[in-house]
Simulated assay, not measured.
Amino acid sequence: MYEFIRGAVADLNPASVVVDVGGIGYFVNISLNTYSQVNGKKEVKLLIHQVVREDAHVLYGFAEKRERDLFRSLISVNGVGASTALMMLSSLSPDEITSAVATGNADVLKAVKGIGTKTAQRIIIDLKDKLGKMPESGQILISTDNTIRNEALSALVMLGFAKKDADKAVSKIIKDDPGATVERVIKTALKRL
Rank of each mutant, 00 (worst) to 15 (best):
179 G>P: 07
43 E>T: 13
188 T>K: 13
114 G>Q: 06
36 S>I: 00
31 S>H: 06
49 H>D: 10
144 T>V: 06
14 P>N: 03
70 L>D: 10
69 D>V: 08
191 K>M: 09
149 R>M: 11
4 F>Q: 13
185 V>R: 06
129 D>I: 02
163 K>E: 14
131 L>P: 00
107 D>K: 13
95 D>G: 11
140 I>S: 12
67 E>G: 11
180 A>W: 06
158 M>I: 00
18 V>S: 04
184 R>T: 05
123 I>Q: 01
71 F>T: 02
69 D>R: 02
133 K>H: 10
130 K>Q: 08
93 S>E: 07
125 I>Q: 14
127 L>D: 04
22 G>Q: 02
127 L>K: 11
136 E>P: 07
109 L>N: 01
161 F>S: 02
84 T>Y: 01
167 D>E: 09
3 E>H: 14
82 A>I: 03
41 K>N: 05
119 T>D: 05
120 A>N: 06
144 T>N: 14
84 T>Q: 07
20 D>V: 11
91 S>P: 02
107 D>T: 15
162 A>C: 06
183 E>W: 01
155 A>F: 03
148 I>Y: 06
145 D>E: 14
147 T>R: 15
83 S>M: 09
36 S>G: 08
145 D>N: 10
20 D>H: 10
131 L>H: 06
153 L>Y: 03
35 Y>S: 03
5 I>W: 04
49 H>K: 05
57 H>S: 10
128 K>Q: 12
45 K>T: 15
39 N>M: 14
48 I>K: 05
183 E>F: 08
125 I>T: 08
169 A>M: 11
108 V>Q: 08
21 V>D: 13
175 K>S: 14
167 D>H: 12
27 F>M: 12
157 V>G: 02
140 I>M: 11
102 A>W: 10
118 K>L: 12
72 R>F: 06
142 I>N: 08
126 D>E: 15
66 R>V: 13
67 E>S: 13
9 V>M: 14
55 D>N: 14
122 R>P: 00
145 D>L: 11
30 I>K: 03
189 A>T: 01
